[in-house]
Design a protein around this nucleic acid. Structure first.
Lengths: 252, 252
DNA sequence: AAATGGCACTTGTATGGACAAGTTCACCGA
DNA sequence: TCGGTGAACTTGTCCATACAAGTGCCATTT
């Protein structure tokens, strides 16, 4: 392996934490123990632990062995991007129904977000996402043709579009999400089983390649009684010593 | 001074960056140079640089000196908590009107959030926040009596309740925010100048002391056409090497 | 003129040692 | 029984050193 030692240490501890092999609140082995187990120096072990702390997986304090943090903090990208991954981690059954997948001319904000001329053909996907068999979110995604083409060979049971695209070599890299509120239109209302006009939590996103080429424009609409977002914030006396605020999805 | 050396180094570099003394894109002194200047070892200097990277202030890469990052990232807590601070940074004029400040028995979710028995007296504040003289947000805050008492000597022009409370020794420490959507009730509609029932972006928060004692329960309702939240996300090949996603408020 | 090679400089990784400072817990004394 | 003392263990801070690996640039070569 050519991966640095401190990364390997962090990876192993991380997997033990997320797998539950190290339960919440349990103390990790002390630094001294870890140096033995990985045959590494203490500095290297501390680098790995610092990474886990940054990710919000552990709490550390002088004199106390590091402990697994209360909120098993999710992986920031995959879990925020992937409805399925998030639901599984929360212990819910994620379901979905693909309402429509179509090739049609792009229009409106999607055209602008994808840097395409109005009328350029794109692939549109409309999916209903369910949580424990109850409607929770409507997802409207628009992909440029080169990307969206790959979705016609997409197995709906595979569930994660992003995993599918990454596996096909699409270089998803970064995303920008904008969160606001919107009233349910007729289609939303029927799919989500709410009254037309009732308030929904909306998340619009623009996914980019490393070069800044737009790869997706998506608009998700959540039933606010089923899914909310949350943030934890700490007023840090010494900036940087505490983990950054994270945004999480929450259910019920 | 008893502050650790690596913190002092980070502080000095941070202040040079935010003050603009080190312009965007400019390379920082090399690690070797910094060890001389602060008479510190290289490990200590690297600890400081790692902190700055975590905060998103600098970009680093093997072989290249660290450079000041394009987006001067905002301070996470104060800027997320304080409407006024946020508006100023965005270049907008934040205004406000205190609609009501009252002492009354607590009821409903506020009682639960503050760990108080139903009916315990609390201080309630209702404020209308404006952005460039246009109604943007309704803020409902509930404080336990010991805390809320300090608000009767609060100068409405001082504008930041949190700054006022911190100055009076209230140990605001951490906060948990839940974001969802809700329909405007009669009062909201009148204050925000929207139709009753129209969708609003709601942020509920619980502010705690370091010991976990609840100090505030707040509920803010934003006009989604005036204020939204946004998140930037990067799919990191090596977790932890990239700065954490931040949540920001945005206007218009 | 363009490609190639090498050198100087930089950061990344890793080791080992030393001391300071906080936590925990068992033990002893009042 | 209660309280305090202290030792053992832990993490926090800091140092000095070494080598690997990436970048940028200049000089040589083609």
């Amino acid at each position: 392996m050519t991966t640095p030692l401190h990364v390997r240490i962090a990876d192993e501890l991380r997997s033990q934490i997320v797998s539950g092999s190290l339960p919440v609140g349990a103390p990790l082995p002390s630094e001294a123990r870890l140096t033995e187990r990985f045959d590494a120096s203490r500095g290297t072990v501390r680098t790995a632990l610092a990474a886990l702390q940054r990710e919000g997986l552990i709490d550390r304090g002088q004199g106390r062995p590091p402990v697994v943090r209360e909120s098993a903090a999710p992986q920031s990208f995959e879990s925020f991007m992937s409805f399925t991954a998030w639901a599984q981690r929360e212990g819910h059954a994620a379901g979905q129904r693909t309402i429509e997948i179509a090739r049609r001319p792009v229009r409106g904000p999607a055209a602008e977000a994808l840097n395409l001329a109005e009328g350029t053909p794109v692939i549109e996907v409309l999916r209903l996402r369910t949580l424990d068999a109850k409607a929770a979110m409507v997802e409207r995604s628009v992909f440029p043709e080169e990307v969206g083409r790959l979705l016609f060979e997409f197995d709906p049971d595979e569930s994660s579009i992003y995993a599918h695209l990454l596996g096909r070599g699409i270089p998803l890299h970064s995303a920008r999400h904008v969160i606001d509120a919107v009233g349910a239109d007729e289609a939303d209302a029927e799919l989500l089983e709410v009254a037309p006009g009732s308030p929904l939590l909306r998340e619009r996103r623009r996914v980019l390649s490393p070069d800044g080429v737009p790869l997706e424009y998506g608009e998700d609409r959540y039933r606010p009684d089923r899914v909310t977002f949350s943030i934890n914030n700490v007023l840090s006396p010494t900036p940087g010593s505490t983990p950054e605020p994270r945004i999480l999805k929450e259910s019920s």
